[in-house]
Amino acid sequence: MAADLLGYAGKRVVVMGCYSGTGEACARHLVDLGAEVHGADIKPSPVKGLASFTTVDLKDPEAIAAGVASIGGQMDALFNVSGLPQTFPGEDVVTVNFLGIRMWTETWLPQMRSGGAIVSVSSLAGMRYLMRQPLLKQFMELTDFADARSWYVANAEEAGDPYTLSKEALNTWTQQTAPMLMQRNIRINCTMPSPIDTPMLGEFRKVAGSAVLDAFAGAKGRFSTPDEQALPLILLNSDAASFISGTCLAVDAGLSGGLSTGVLDMERMMAGAAAR
């Protein structure tokens, strides 16, 4: 059996969202694994050893195209880790979290090598995506940013929370895209994290409240660390996961499974969190 099971040594990879949190941890580990790591974000990354860093605003289609062109060359793996919480305008949230990530990925696809892989960070907020397919279909059919943003504003009441909508769309797109990409021997997956102990956690607390947010830490008794989310991303894009594509992997210490099977009760967990 090969010593390098993950197989990143010498591979070219891009980490979108490497300024902080999970993306920063992901880029740092990939550098240590011997990959040629190209970073992108709206803010400069602190990660040492990057082959390049490119400033990209995922709300701007021209910036996305320019970012791909600036990095250039063939690529082995994409890591899509950027995202905005609901404290930003709803139309910006759906643009960055889904429209921008989708365009960024699709712009890279012609330069993806056979055997390549793509992974995106979704969220447990999007776990009910299969129940909202008719609405998601309307949203996802809009590829023009301005049209999609206008659709969200016009349908905000039915669409609901923009963060949830964006993650439901990301899950759906991942699974829709997987069979087509497999024809080119390219894999695509996403993860659905429970809350992560990063600066963004405070923004989610403003929206959801402490009782709801703390209940989501109930299965493990604490929030996830950035490393605990970064390493599954690295696994999914590695040679060790060569037969995994089209999956939406919950990285939540068993929370979603417990809720789905009734072993855990969210109302009880929220009450317990509120009482502490």
Rank of each mutant, 00 (worst) to 15 (best):
R113N: 14
R28M: 03
C26W: 12
I71Q: 05
G73S: 08
G100W: 04
A27L: 13
G100E: 04
I101R: 14
I64L: 00
L78H: 04
P110K: 15
L50N: 03
G90W: 02
F79A: 05
T55I: 12
K43F: 05
D32G: 15
T95I: 13
T105W: 03
F98Y: 13
P89H: 07
L109H: 06
E106R: 04
A51S: 09
V81N: 01
D92P: 09
V93T: 12
H38D: 05
P44D: 03
F98V: 00
S52R: 14
P85H: 04
M75V: 15
C26L: 15
E106C: 09
F79W: 04
K43R: 15
K59C: 10
S45D: 02
E91S: 11
P89N: 08
V96I: 11
G72N: 10
T105C: 07
P110E: 06
C26N: 15
I101D: 11
D76Q: 12
A69T: 01
V94Q: 13
V68T: 08
K43A: 02
G34H: 09
L58S: 03
V56D: 00
A65G: 09
T107W: 01
V93R: 13
K59M: 05
T105G: 08
Q86W: 03
A66G: 08
F53Q: 07
E36P: 14
D41N: 09
L30N: 10
I71D: 03
G90P: 10
N97F: 07
H29Y: 06
S82E: 03
H29S: 08
L33R: 15
L33S: 14
L50K: 06
H29R: 15
N80Q: 12
S70V: 08
A63S: 15
T87C: 04
T95G: 13
V96L: 01
K48C: 06
P61Y: 04
I71H: 08
V96D: 00
T55G: 09
I101C: 10
T87R: 14
A40T: 12
V96W: 00
G100V: 02
W104A: 11
G49H: 08
H29M: 09
L30Y: 06
L50G: 11
V47D: 05
P46N: 10
E36A: 15
L78E: 02
P44W: 02
P44E: 03
S45Y: 01
G67C: 08
R113W: 07
D92Q: 14
H29C: 10
V31I: 13
V47F: 07
N80L: 05
P89S: 06
I71N: 04
V56G: 02
W108A: 08
R102D: 00
D57V: 07
D60K: 00
Q111A: 14
